[in-house]
Amino acid sequence: MDEGKPLFVQIAEQVEESILDGSIAEEAQAPSTNELAVFHRINPATAAKGVNMLVDKGVLYKRRGIGMFVSPGARELLLKERRNDFALRYVQPLLAEAQRIGLGPDDVADLIRTGAGATPAQP
């Protein structure tokens, strides 16, 4: 999973995944810093940094004395962010690789429409 991303970013992304796929609902309690640290076998300070990043983003909020909870609207927020990033994270590398092997944007579009990948093309 490591693309050279800082560990705390990876931890934050994993929590985001759980919110996106609905395994942690909005207004539900999020895993604590210590739980994250023990589960991922990382230093609690690193886990805390990841959690704080999510708090700053408005994905999590703190209830005093109880713990971290998923903010209302967090899922929508994350979906919006992921959609914004989609072009950068997936489409650009896709087109770069396509160019390298001699496929134009239209070829790629065709492949996507016909659901390519099920049958690998013969050389």
Binding site: N34, A37, P44
Partner: peptide, 13 residues
């Protein structure tokens, strides 16, 4: 050892 260290450290910094 690593797991115990981490768990106990998290609870008793």
């Amino acid at each position: 050892f690593y797991d115990r260290l981490l768990a106990d450290y998290a609870e008793f910094p």
